[in-house]
Computed example of a mutant assay.
Amino acid sequence: MKTLKSIMLGLALLIIGGTVKAHTPPVNDNLTKTYAVNTYINAITRGKMDGLSDVLDKSVKFSMLRGNDVLSFDKKEMLDFMRKDRNVQQSCLTSTHVVESSNDIAMVRVDMQYDNFVRSNYVTIANTGAGWKITSVYSVFK
């Protein structure tokens, strides 16, 4: 009887452990901080859209300061806009600077130097549990 109780307890723990494990989101090992930033840069500077949708969080927000107005866009609006510029190479020099980085969140400034101005993109990347994803981009023109 004691052995039967031990076996039943073991099976119950195995079922509970399997159920809990089944509900955890899969982690994509490719979704690193570096991959997310490089994919974003390839999209905005070279029009290379491969993997961009994967590195953008479903609730990502794009904001752009134009004069005194702040324009805001969601994921679908930005992807639709970027698809129109697919494979268009920007004539700018691009540089990156890590502003802040931790185990859970990072902010990277991506500067695009054109002939007459600089576009600075402040890209926030978060560890979403399913990999690192871009949660917001704030663009400023100088």
Rank of each mutant, 00 (worst) to 15 (best):
M1S: 08
T3L: 15
K5W: 14
I7A: 12
M8V: 14
M8Q: 11
L11F: 12
A12G: 07
L13W: 03
L13V: 07
L13H: 03
L14I: 06
I16M: 12
G18R: 12
V20I: 15
K21D: 06
A22Y: 15
A22V: 04
V27Q: 10
V27P: 13
N30Q: 15
L31N: 09
T32G: 10
K33R: 10
T34C: 07
A36Q: 03
N38A: 06
T39Y: 04
Y40M: 09
I41W: 14
I41C: 06
I41Q: 05
I41F: 13
A43D: 09
A43Q: 04
I44G: 02
I44D: 01
T45W: 02
G47D: 03
K48C: 00
K48V: 00
K48A: 00
K48L: 00
K48S: 00
D50K: 01
D50A: 03
L52F: 07
L52S: 02
K58W: 10
K58D: 13
K58H: 11
V60I: 13
V60D: 04
S63A: 13
S63F: 02
M64H: 07
M64D: 05
L65A: 12
R66T: 00
N68C: 02
D69G: 00
D69Q: 08
F73Y: 11
F73E: 09
F73N: 03
D74E: 07
D74K: 00
K75E: 11
K75G: 04
E77N: 06
E77M: 08
L79A: 09
L79S: 03
R83G: 10
N87H: 10
V88H: 12
V88W: 08
Q89A: 08
Q89L: 14
Q90V: 13
Q90R: 08
S91D: 13
T94M: 15
T94S: 14
T94P: 03
S95P: 10
T96C: 04
T96M: 09
H97R: 14
H97I: 04
H97Y: 06
V99I: 10
V99D: 13
V99S: 01
E100Y: 09
S101R: 09
S102F: 09
S102V: 07
N103F: 07
N103G: 14
I105F: 06
A106H: 08
D111M: 14
Y114H: 15
Y114L: 13
D115A: 11
D115T: 12
N116L: 09
N116T: 13
F117P: 00
V118L: 12
V118F: 05
V118N: 10
R119C: 08
R119W: 04
S120F: 09
N121E: 11
Y122N: 02
V123Y: 02
V123H: 01
V123C: 03
T124P: 02
T124C: 10
I125L: 14
N127K: 14
N127I: 06
T128A: 05
G131S: 03
G131W: 02
T135W: 08
S136N: 09
V137A: 07
Y138Q: 09
Y138P: 01
F141H: 08
F141M: 11
K142Y: 06
